[in-house]
Design a protein around this nucleic acid. Structure first.
Lengths: 214, 214
DNA sequence: GCAAATCGGTAAGGCTTATTACCAGTTTAT
DNA sequence: ATAAACTGGTAATAAGCCTTACCGATTTGC
């Protein structure tokens, strides 16, 4: 009696799952555009629905609230960036620390600056929304810091870097990379080109991890 | 005819200027508490007035809007921090670059972490409020970056650092210091104590400015 | 002391926006 | 083919909040 047949019913030649994912995609795309141009707080659900060509009724079918949509969007952006970094690091020469670091940070910056709107959403519009969102954002930053810390410890283990606590170094480097990412995304010309910014970030990370004397 | 006698009239044994500055102070203090605990967007003007023991009528006498209040508060925080940094740098030994950098960054971190609420307001609650506020915030970050850049160039001039473009380095360092400041403010115990954080920031800045080989 | 001017609190108007109830359109089962 | 079930758009409900008009309280000038 309770069992519902999901994904079986068709509507306008589309299955339920198709319609849902399509609507979800449209809403996310609308949110990317609206949040990055008008700002999260100035974007109303009705506006998002109008841009996505759907209705508020369906909005609540996909997301419980505007914040839930932002949450999902934030996760998408971060998952993509984290994946790019992990892949780049894995593909780099394990014996060459600078190359590893450079590959990872360049992958991150390339991922984030590819679409200015995403950088803005991740680093500006998602800040200070609510206690929940803040906790989530902090967790994401911690995850990035953990990756950096892990890489640093790996180098220390291989005697390429001094053995010490890299916790604060990692936090500082996350902040530095974030600042460079925003700069590259908003004014990615000349001095702040992706190439220059990636080089700067790499130098800074190497200097911070390998220590002042090297 | 048009000339108004300002500050002359008394009300409840207080002059106009006295009442205004007092109210302003109470409103700012209420805003610090409300913004940092409930968040900027969740704090209504009525709430602020209730906490400050005044009325909405008087709120608009002092500030044109809630955002204007945040703007003023943000400026206060930054002015104090910038002043502390400038004083610390001026008092430091011009010949000892690391001491200068350490004094400046320690002064900044001490100023910001002295009151957790201020750190939260400056680095979290003020982000992504509006186009105006964003421009203002960016300008403040640029000002900090300019100070760092100037110090770096000063060192290069004295042949204590290599001669190069420090623009991106300064931006990265501002981000790093911001990240450390937030960490110290929110979890300023053990590893993230003011002392440790200041030391980390100093090391990073010296390494970044003086170059990898030193 | 009295009128004119100023100050400040209350309360209501008006706008925006989230949320849901309702109904029309569409599909499946018998 | 028709009833039952499901899908989705419109529109109304409801709440929150900014803003200001109004009016009593207080003070100054004459």
């Amino acid at each position: 009696m309770e069992a519902k047949k999901i994904d079986s019913r068709m509507y306008r030649s589309r299955t339920t799952a198709e319609r849902r994912t399509e609507r979800r995609g449209k809403l996310v795309e609308a949110a990317i555009e609206a949040f990055s141009s008008s700002g999260y707080r100035n974007s109303s659900i009705e506006q998002l629905c109008a841009m996505a060509g759907t209705s508020t009724r369906n909005f609540y079918e996909e997301f419980g609230s505007k914040e839930e949509l932002l949450h999902a969007l934030y996760d998408d952006i971060n998952k993509r960036a984290l994946g790019a970094v992990a892949a780049a690091i894995a593909a780099a020469d394990p014996e060459n620390p600078k190359a590893r670091v450079g590959a990872g940070v360049t992958a991150y910056l390339a991922s984030v600056t590819a679409d200015v709107r995403l950088a803005r959403i991740a680093h500006v519009e998602s800040v200070g929304i609510s206690a929940d969102m803040e906790a989530h954002r902090q967790a994401a930053l911690d995850a990035f810091a953990a990756i950096i810390k892990q890489e640093a410890e790996r180098m220390a283990m291989a005697r390429q870097a001094p053995t010490r606590d890299f916790s604060l170094t990692a936090i500082a480097l996350v902040g530095a990379i974030k600042g460079l990412a925003v700069t590259a995304a908003t004014q990615g010309d000349g001095t702040a080109s992706l190439k220059n910014v990636a080089a700067e970030a790499t130098e800074l990370m190497v200097a911070a991890i390998l220590g002042p004397r090297h």
